[in-house]
Measured scan of single mutants.
Amino acid sequence: DEIHIHFNGVTIEFRGLTEEAKKALEEAIKRGASEEELKELARRLIK
């Protein structure tokens, strides 16, 4: 299970995320999180 985020022309790929983690990332994107914020969020979620 993986998710691809297209962000300002950059694709960020995450693997092994739970549904909750995906929802958290989607919410962050909707509120306009920066690419760095998304990566940091993903790091926290994957652990």
Rank of each mutant, 00 (worst) to 15 (best):
N8Y: 02
G16A: 05
I46Y: 11
E27H: 11
L38A: 01
L17Q: 02
E19Q: 12
G16H: 12
K23V: 11
L17S: 01
L38N: 00
K39W: 15
I12N: 01
K30N: 10
H4G: 02
H6F: 08
S34D: 08
K47Y: 15
A28N: 01
E2M: 13
E19L: 14
K22L: 11
R43D: 07
I5M: 05
L45I: 08
K30Y: 14
G32W: 05
L45K: 00
A33S: 06
D1P: 11
L17W: 04
K23P: 04
A24H: 09
H4W: 06
L17M: 08
I3E: 05
K39M: 15
I5D: 01
A28W: 13
F7L: 13
E19A: 12
I46R: 06
I5L: 11
A33H: 03
I5G: 02
F7W: 07
E19K: 11
R31H: 08
A33T: 07
H4K: 11
K22P: 01
A24Q: 13
A33V: 13
A21E: 12
E27L: 14
R15T: 11
E26H: 10
R31E: 06
D1N: 12
A33Y: 10
T18H: 06
K22M: 12
E37T: 05
E35F: 14
G9K: 02
I5K: 01
K22W: 12
E13M: 13
F14A: 04
H4S: 07
R44T: 09
E35G: 11
D1Q: 11
F7N: 02
E2K: 13
T11Y: 10
A24R: 09
V10D: 05
A28K: 02
L38Q: 00
G32V: 03
G16Q: 09
E40L: 10
K47V: 15
G9Q: 02
R15P: 13
A24K: 09
I29T: 02
T18L: 03
F14P: 00
F14Y: 06
R31C: 04
R31W: 14
E36C: 04
L38C: 02
K22R: 11
T18Q: 06
L41D: 00
G32E: 03
N8G: 10
I46W: 06
T18M: 03
L45V: 03
E36H: 10
A33I: 13
R43H: 06
E26M: 13
L17E: 01
R43A: 09
I5Q: 01
K47A: 15
N8M: 06
K22V: 13
E2H: 14
K47W: 15
E37M: 07
G32C: 05
G16I: 04
D1T: 10
L17F: 09
R15W: 15
E20R: 11
R44G: 03
G16P: 03
E2W: 15
I29C: 04
E13W: 15
G32N: 05
E40D: 06
A33L: 10
K22T: 06
L38W: 07
S34F: 04
E26T: 12
G32S: 03
I46D: 05
L17D: 01
R31S: 10
H6P: 01
I29E: 01
S34E: 04
E27Y: 15
T11R: 13
V10R: 07
S34M: 04
E27A: 11
K39L: 15
R31T: 07
